[in-house]
Design a protein around this nucleic acid. Structure first.
Length: 226
DNA sequence: CACCAGGCAAGTA
DNA sequence: TACTTGCATGGT
């Protein structure tokens, strides 16, 4: 993907979104997400980072790696209680241990011990399968689809709500699917674009105040003044 | 001290 | 259906 050879955009909304994307890319550069060593680590990280600072997730992933548990077999052979203690720094460790176990059971029951069969599955509805797992909601499912299975699915998170609402591109009642459609109906279905855009939204969103109107300190506004 | 962080499920009315 | 609450550590 080259930032200076834009995709064909056919709507005003699409142009506004691409303008935001270009500004973010210009200011922060490529984010190269997802920061993980392999697809399984990515999926584990997706569960661990639920409502949790990524720095804390890294500590949990580190202890899983150091213990040699970051494989389907390694995690499967680990009692939930032990898994919980290993992922303590990521918070919500009891419930997240169960969620990881639920995900592991889904993968091994549906695809055996070969993760690539899951990642390359083009026949069934991967999203519905993931959403049937207790502990995998829309954002975690879509993160896995985009960053592990490389499908052109746009991931929505709290920062996406905040930025779009602040720039009057969505109302405060907008739901997940509604915001996802906003991106997917107006941008080309391109996994590398969705990958970088979501990562940049997370990076940029951190600089917006949680509850305050748009002001000159909001990144996109400040950059336009430069 | 309060507040936040790359959500989700279960309970309540 | 539409809110509300529990889950929990670590950093600012």
């Amino acid at each position: 993907m080259k930032s200076n050879s834009p995709y064909p955009i056919h709507t005003e909304t699409g142009r506004r979104l691409m303008e935001m994307f270009e500004l973010m890319l210009e200011h922060f550069g490529p984010q190269n997400w997802w920061p993980a060593d392999g697809e399984l680590e990515m999926m584990v990280g997706a569960v661990l980072t639920q409502n949790t600072n990524w720095k804390n997730v890294e500590k949990a992933l580190r202890s899983l790696k150091d213990g040699g548990y970051l494989s389907l077999e390694g995690l499967d052979g680990l009692p939930a209680e032990e898994l919980a203690q290993l992922i303590r720094p990521a918070g919500y460790y009891n419930i997240k241990a169960k969620r990881l176990k639920n995900l592991l059971r889904f993968l091994m029951d549906q695809y055996g011990s070969d993760l690539s069969l899951f990642l390359q599955d083009a026949t069934r509805s991967l999203r519905e399968g993931l959403l049937s797992v207790k502990g995998i909601g829309p954002e975690t499912a879509d993160s896995i689809l985009l960053y592990a299975a490389h499908r052109p699915v746009f991931v929505i998170d709290a920062y996406t709500y905040r930025i779009l609402y602040r720039h009057d591109m969505a109302d405060d009642q907008a739901g997940y699917e509604e915001l996802q459609d906003l991106f997917m109906d107006h941008l080309p279905e391109d996994a590398p674009l969705f990958n970088e855009f979501h990562a940049l939204i997370v990076k940029t969103g951190k600089h917006y105040c949680k509850k305050r109107p748009l002001c000159a300190k909001c990144p996109l506004e400040a950059w336009r003044m430069e």
